[in-house]
């Protein structure tokens, strides 16, 4: 059902854990639907993501998309991190079963939610970043896949 990449990231998740006093933290999803993702970011003065950690309640795909998303944004600038779409997440995992594509949206939303929190704490506006929905399942957008 899952690709080798998904299974690898599920069995050996990268950057799993918490960051104390993070620059930004965001939580998306809901327990009702069975997946919740939390992303922690440490961003330096140059706007580069120095560290990222995640925690996820969810299926194998939810864990794997969180894990790969942290790899995709670590070391990137805030602006570059914003460009990481759910499609990039799916591609990096060599694909997801159709019913699991929504997990990749959750990963994208988790990054955005953490960046939004960072921007609010810093009192800055990140160009192109919209306020994340509190519950992405309320109006789940069509995946770009």
């Amino acid at each position: 059902m899952y690709t080798k990449k998904v299974m690898d990231h599920f069995a050996n998740p990268r950057n799993m854990g918490e960051i104390e006093n993070p620059s930004g933290v965001g939580t998306v999803g809901n327990a009702k639907c069975g997946d919740i993702m939390r992303m922690y970011l440490n961003i330096d003065d140059n706007g580069v993501i120095q560290d990222v950690k995640f925690k996820t309640f969810g299926c194998g795909a939810a864990v794997a998309t969180s894990s790969i998303a942290t790899e995709l944004i670590k070391g990137k600038t805030v602006q570059d991190a914003l460009k990481v779409t759910n499609k990039a997440v799916v591609d990096a995992l060599d694909g997801l079963p159709p019913v699991k594509v929504h997990c990749s949206l959750l990963a994208e939303e988790a990054i955005h939610a953490a960046l939004w929190d960072y921007a609010e704490k810093k009192g800055i506006v990140i160009e192109g970043l919209e306020k994340p929905k509190s519950d992405i399942h309320e109006e789940e957008k069509e995946p770009t896949y």
Partner: peptide, 8 residues
């Protein structure tokens, strides 16, 4: 559970 934000 160590991975779960709900548990945290």
């Amino acid at each position: 559970r160590k991975m779960s934000p709900l548990y945290e």
